[in-house]
Simulated scan of single mutants.
Amino acid sequence: MASIEQNPDQINPPSPSSSASSSSNPWKERILIPTLLAGVAGGAIGLISKHRKVHGLSTISATYASNFAIVTGCYCGAREFVRVSRTGKPDDLLNSVIGGFGSGAILGRLQGGQIGAVRYSVIFAVVGTAADYAALKLKPAISKFTEKEDSWFKLPEWSPIQVLDDEALAAKRAREQQIYRNVHNLNKEESR
């Protein structure tokens, strides 16, 4: 049995702050955000549904939104459960296949018995994996678009919302303290 020697300078133990932030990011980025987006998309589809005249616009939109959110939440949760169980990478499409198959089987069994479980598991595995594959291919283009310095999202200089550096923040605090002192002294003079 061969032993592998490691250079102690190359070993980087994770800091507590990085492990805490990395454990919350998959929850937000890989489960919560897709579930919320699916709910919004479901609500939008409910707005144009042909059933809105029969059931009412708000009822059908809420139904579509909740169904889309439930399906997406179950799929994303199952995919993340599989990823953690396999100790795999977030970009591994096998996690999507297994998670889609499992979540589709559970939701299909609840909805349509054994036949529904088989049908839903195949549909969830195929559609979920296709969506994850498309997201993987689009992620570099989206990140390249949002990282540009001359992005459309940059606030103009005249905007009242500004991001302050340390010097500007210190000057702002000094002005606020000066105003507070002036107002406080003015109140003392009025009370005399």
Rank of each mutant, 00 (worst) to 15 (best):
Y64Q: 03
V82N: 08
P90S: 12
S103H: 03
S58F: 14
L93H: 02
Y64C: 02
G42T: 02
S61N: 05
V122N: 07
F81R: 05
G116E: 01
T59F: 13
R79F: 14
F124D: 02
L47A: 07
A69R: 02
G100S: 02
C74T: 13
S58L: 14
N67F: 08
S49P: 14
A130C: 09
V82Y: 08
S85C: 10
L47W: 10
R86S: 08
R109L: 15
A69Q: 03
L57Y: 11
E80R: 02
C74W: 08
I98G: 03
C76Q: 15
I48R: 02
H51Q: 15
I45Y: 12
Y120N: 14
V82H: 07
R79M: 15
K89T: 12
T87C: 09
V84E: 15
F81P: 00
I98E: 13
K89D: 15
G104I: 11
A78Q: 05
G112P: 15
G102W: 09
G128M: 06
V84L: 14
G108T: 08
T72R: 02
H55P: 01
S103D: 09
A65E: 08
G73M: 07
F124A: 02
L110M: 10
G39K: 00
S96I: 04
D92Y: 01
A44K: 06
L47R: 06
A131L: 15
K50M: 08
T35P: 00
G43L: 07
L37S: 09
L107K: 04
S66A: 11
L93C: 03
I60T: 14
D132W: 03
S121W: 07
N95F: 05
G43F: 12
G113I: 01
I115T: 13
K89Y: 10
E80T: 00
V71E: 05
G77W: 07
S85V: 09
F81T: 13
L110E: 03
A125M: 06
R79V: 15
F101V: 06
V71A: 11
L110A: 10
F101L: 14
R52D: 00
V127Q: 05
L57C: 10
G112I: 04
A62D: 07
R83E: 15
A130K: 05
